[in-house]
C-alpha cells in the first residue's frame, strides 16, 4: 500500500561517488530489468485496457459507459468517495493531532491501531462489518428495527471504505506534524492567539499540502477498493455496485468490451491521481526544503 512515501525521489538524493558504487554495467542491467519489468507488469495491462475497450469502436465504448447500471455505479463510487474522504480527513487530523501534540498513555497502541487496516486483508475488513452490523448481529437487528439498512446498502459500503482508507491521511500527517514541532504554535499563543486561531492560521497552513496528498491517496483507494466493498455491498445492480464491482460483473457475464470500457474510467481516474499527486509532491518537497533551510539556519 502506497502512501507513506512523501519524499520526492526523482531529484536530489545523495549521488553515490564511484568508489562506493557498482560498475556501469551493473547500473544498466538494473535499469533495464526495472524498465522491462514495469512495462510488462504495469504499462502493458494498462494499454490493453484501453485497446480492448476501444476494439469494437468508440460507439460501443461510449454506450457501455453511459449505460444506466454503469452510470449508477459511477455515481455510487463518487458518493462513497465524497463521504469517505472528508470524514477520514477529519479523523486523520484528529488522530495525528492527538499523537503528535499530546503525551498520553496508550499512544503507541493508537499508532499501531491506525496501521491495522494496512495489515488486514480487505475481505476480512468487509466481513468484520457483516459480523458487526449484519441482520444476525444485535447491532444490525437494532438498526433494522428502525428500518435503517447498513449492510448491502450505502452506509455499509462507506464504513468498509473508511476502514480500509483510514491510515492514508493519519499516516501522512503524523511525520509531518512531528517534524514541525510545537514552537510556531507556542509563538502564536504567546502573541495572544486562541486554540482555534492557532489551528487555522498556523498549524493548518503548515500541513495543508501533506493533508491534500493524503486525501488524494485516500480518494484513489476509496474509488478503487474492491475486496471490502465486495463483501458488504451485496452486488445489487444499479444500487449497490461500485465501479470495480460493476467491472467484475460485466467480466463474469463475458461482456469484455463493456468491462474494459468501465475499467478505462478507473484508469483515467488513476492517471489523474498520479498527476495531482506529483504536483503535490513537488509542492511538499518545496515546503520541506524551506523548512529544513529555516531549521538549519535557525
Amino acid at each position: 500500500m502506497a502512501g507513506i512515501v512523501t519524499k520526492k525521489a526523482g531529484s536530489g538524493g545523495d549521488l553515490r561517488p564511484p568508489h562506493i558504487s557498482e560498475p556501469k554495467i551493473v547500473k544498466w542491467i538494473l535499469i533495464a530489468i526495472s524498465i522491462i519489468f514495469l512495462c510488462s507488469i504495469v504499462l502493458l495491462p494498462l494499454i490493453i485496457v484501453l485497446f480492448e475497450s476501444l476494439k469494437n469502436g468508440i460507439g460501443l465504448y461510449l454506450e457501455s459507459i453511459v449505460e444506466p447500471d454503469a452510470m449508477s455505479a459511477l455515481l455510487l463510487t463518487i458518493t462513497v468517495a465524497v463521504i469517505t474522504v472528508p470524514l477520514n480527513s477529519f479523523f486523520g487530523i484528529c488522530a495525528a493531532w492527538a499523537i503528535t501534540k499530546f503525551q498520553f498513555r496508550g499512544k503507541n497502541f493508537l499508532i499501531s491501531l491506525i496501521d491495522v487496516p494496512f495489515a488486514v486483508s480487505p475481505v476480512i475488513s468487509g466481513l468484520i462489518f457483516i459480523l458487526l452490523l449484519g441482520t444476525n448481529s444485535a447491532l444490525g437487528a437494532w438498526f433494522e428495527s428502525y428500518n435503517i439498512q447498513i449492510i448491502f446498502a450505502l452506509p455499509g459500503i462507506v464504513l468498509a471504505t473508511m476502514f480500509v482508507t483510514f491510515p492514508f491521511i493519519a499516516r501522512e500527517l503524523i511525520p509531518l506534524m512531528q517534524a514541525q514541532g510545537i514552537q510556531e504554535e507556542e509563538a502564536a499563543a504567546s502573541l495572544g492567539a486562541s486554540g482555534w486561531k492557532i489551528f487555522w492560521r498556523v498549524t493548518f497552513p503548515n500541513i495543508k499540502w501533506g493533508l491534500l496528498y493524503g486525501m488524494i491517496l485516500c480518494n484513489a483507494r476509496a474509488i478503487g477498493e474492491f475486496g471490502a466493498v465486495s463483501v458488504v455491498s451485496g452486488h445489487i445492480r444499479g444500487e449497490t455496485n461500485t465501479l470495480p464491482l460493476h467491472v467484475e460483473i460485466l467480466y463474469n457475464e463475458y461482456q469484455f468490451t463493456a468491462a474494459f470500457a468501465v475499467s478505462s474510467l478507473l484508469v483515467f481516474i488513476a492517471l489523474l491521481t498520479i498527476i495531482v499527486k506529483s504536483f503535490i509532491e513537488w509542492k511538499t518537497h518545496q515546503q520541506q526544503s524551506q523548512m529544513q533551510e529555516v531549521d538549519h539556519h535557525g
Partner: peptide
C-alpha cells in the same frame, strides 16, 4: 512577548 531560540517564525 517571547523570542524563541530558533525564532519559530511562521514559515
Amino acid at each position: 512577548g517571547f523570542v524563541f531560540q530558533n525564532y519559530a517564525l511562521f514559515r
